[in-house]
Computed example of a mutant assay.
Amino acid sequence: MEEVDVLRQARELLASVTLAEYLASQPPRTVVSVTAADPLSQVLRRFASTRLVAAPCFADEARTRFLGFLDLMDVVVAVVDAARHQGPATPTARCSISSSGSSGTLRHHAATVARQLAERPVSAVRATANDAQLVYQAQLGNTLLEVVREGFVHPVDDLACHRLAVFQPSGSEEEGKDVVMGGGSGVLGPMTAADGVGLQVTHIVSQSDMLRFLHKHQAQLGSTLLGSTLQQLGLQGKRVLCVPADLAVIDALAGMVDARVPAVAVIDSEESGRLVGNLSISDLRGLQPSHFEQLGEPVGDFLRDGGWREGARWQGASLLGGVAVKFGIKSPESLPHEPPLAVCRLDSTFGEVLALLAGRHLHRLFVVDGEGRPVGVVSLTDILSLLAG
Rank of each mutant, 00 (worst) to 15 (best):
Q42E: 13
K330T: 15
W308K: 02
H203A: 13
H215I: 05
I97W: 06
E371D: 13
W314M: 12
L164M: 11
R304G: 05
L140C: 02
R45M: 02
V257Q: 02
Q139C: 04
L7W: 07
G351K: 02
A194N: 06
L211P: 01
S348I: 09
S49M: 06
A165R: 02
L362S: 07
A193K: 01
T90Y: 12
V17L: 12
L226S: 10
A15G: 15
A93Y: 02
A245I: 04
I250G: 00
V122I: 13
P339Y: 09
A165Q: 00
F350V: 08
D347C: 11
T229Q: 04
S269C: 06
R65H: 05
Q236F: 05
P374G: 02
H85F: 09
L386A: 02
V187F: 08
L362V: 11
A24T: 00
P88H: 07
L211R: 08
M73I: 10
D157K: 10
P298V: 07
L221Y: 01
R212N: 11
E150K: 14
Q86I: 05
C242W: 03
E175S: 12
G277I: 07
G255C: 02
F152W: 04
Q207T: 08
L188R: 15
T92S: 12
G198T: 08
P91H: 04
S123Q: 12
D71P: 03
D268W: 07
